[in-house]
Computed example of a mutant assay.
Amino acid sequence: MINESALLESKSLRDGVLERTDLLDKVKALSLLPDGTHVTTAMVAAYFEVAETVINNLLNRHRQELQSNGLRVLRGPELRDFKELNLSFYQSGYPQPRSSLAIWSRRAVLNVAMLLRDSDVARQVRTYLLDMEYLARTQPAENPAPTDVVSLDHRIDQRITHILGKTVVPMFNALIETSGEHRKELIALRAGVQRIERRLHQHHARLQRLEGVRDDRPAVGVMAAMDAMHGRTFEHHIAKLLRRDGCTNVVVQGGHGDRGVDIIALTPDGRRLVAQCKRFAPYLNITSPEVQKFIGAAKVLHSADVALYVATCPFTPEALSIAAEAGITAVHRGVLEEWSAGEPLTVLE
């Protein structure tokens, strides 16, 4: 099984997942140049929330690999033609003359995500890649359908199966009864249609299993499982982690009348604990107003000794700062992944 360290170190493993450029936008929207295909080095740096010099240093260290995945350095007439195509961008974004320009394809940007160590955004992209790699390895080979079209596949499968079972097969039965010369061919065709019908039933059952949340999924893939949970299921998952780590009197009370917290419990040493659980998309953020609201509920309404704000997405820097000042433990996506994999929260010890 691929892990994050192996992905950072092995070019062959990186090459195996470079087609998943769609994951970039699942973590954070990637702005493109007017040509709709490329980004500049500055835009790559903005996406990964690092300095442009960091990306330039990465380019110098891994130039050959990045060029094989779509990085190009334009000069001369090629640069002039490119500027004309993206004129509006250069008028507002790069007023100074340039003798060369590095442009990056989406594939090259994904390559950066697998090389850049000190970026939370890059780490989130790698997490998604690992999750999707796990799902690809564990689902049946004859079912390569991406998870974002599962519901559509259900409807198509059911409709085709209905047509085959209620219309096509009875038609063959009638033809077979009245035909003499082509009876064998019709019987063979009917058998083929019935095989397709059975396969569609099996395909439908496999998709239903893949849609369900699996409690036995290992650490690689655990974030994909949590991303697929409903809010209430996510709250119970967090309650399960608290019980695993020795908390007692764990009660899930999220919903109407919860007084601003989703879970109440006692830590292993008897302190009063409350938790807020937010299952948000990984490209969103927990903001400072949300943390401030939770501070009031945790400290004023519940007099909590330990307050956890658990989220499947990052926190803004201001939100993290306010949480730290108020004694709130921010369990963001990275910490949540480690906690779910067995690493206990320090505040519970």
Results as ranks from 00 to 15, higher is better:
11 K>A: 12
12 S>N: 05
12 S>Q: 13
16 G>Q: 12
17 V>E: 01
23 L>K: 01
25 D>H: 08
27 V>L: 04
34 P>N: 09
35 D>S: 11
39 V>G: 05
45 A>Y: 07
46 A>V: 03
52 E>P: 04
58 L>E: 12
61 R>N: 06
64 Q>F: 03
64 Q>R: 14
67 Q>H: 07
72 R>C: 04
76 G>N: 11
76 G>A: 08
77 P>R: 12
77 P>W: 00
80 R>D: 14
83 K>P: 02
85 L>W: 01
85 L>K: 15
85 L>D: 06
85 L>P: 02
86 N>P: 00
87 L>Q: 13
92 S>Y: 01
93 G>S: 13
97 P>R: 08
98 R>C: 05
102 A>Y: 04
105 S>Q: 04
106 R>Q: 13
106 R>D: 04
109 V>Y: 08
110 L>Y: 08
111 N>R: 14
113 A>F: 03
113 A>E: 02
114 M>H: 05
116 L>I: 07
119 S>C: 08
120 D>G: 11
124 Q>W: 00
126 R>H: 04
128 Y>D: 02
131 D>Q: 06
132 M>W: 08
134 Y>H: 15
135 L>E: 13
137 R>N: 13
137 R>Y: 01
137 R>P: 00
139 Q>R: 15
143 N>D: 10
146 P>Q: 08
147 T>S: 12
147 T>V: 09
150 V>T: 14
151 S>Q: 09
161 T>K: 13
161 T>G: 15
168 V>I: 15
174 A>S: 14
182 H>M: 07
182 H>Y: 14
184 K>E: 13
190 R>S: 09
192 G>V: 00
195 R>S: 12
195 R>M: 10
197 E>M: 11
201 H>I: 11
214 R>N: 14
214 R>E: 09
220 V>I: 15
227 D>M: 11
231 G>Y: 04
232 R>M: 06
234 F>H: 09
235 E>I: 02
236 H>N: 11
236 H>P: 00
240 K>T: 12
241 L>M: 11
242 L>A: 06
242 L>G: 11
242 L>N: 09
244 R>E: 08
249 N>Q: 15
249 N>V: 00
250 V>F: 04
250 V>Q: 09
252 V>W: 08
252 V>N: 11
252 V>I: 03
253 Q>V: 08
264 I>A: 12
268 P>F: 05
270 G>Y: 06
273 L>I: 08
276 Q>E: 15
277 C>D: 10
279 R>L: 02
281 A>G: 09
290 E>T: 06
292 Q>L: 13
293 K>E: 12
294 F>H: 11
295 I>P: 05
296 G>S: 12
297 A>I: 08
300 V>Q: 12
302 H>I: 02
304 A>S: 14
311 A>D: 05
311 A>M: 06
312 T>S: 12
313 C>Q: 06
316 T>E: 06
316 T>M: 08
316 T>N: 05
316 T>P: 06
317 P>R: 02
318 E>V: 12
319 A>Q: 02
320 L>Q: 14
322 I>W: 01
323 A>Y: 03
324 A>D: 10
331 V>W: 07
331 V>H: 10
338 E>T: 02
342 G>D: 04
344 P>M: 00
346 T>E: 14
346 T>R: 12
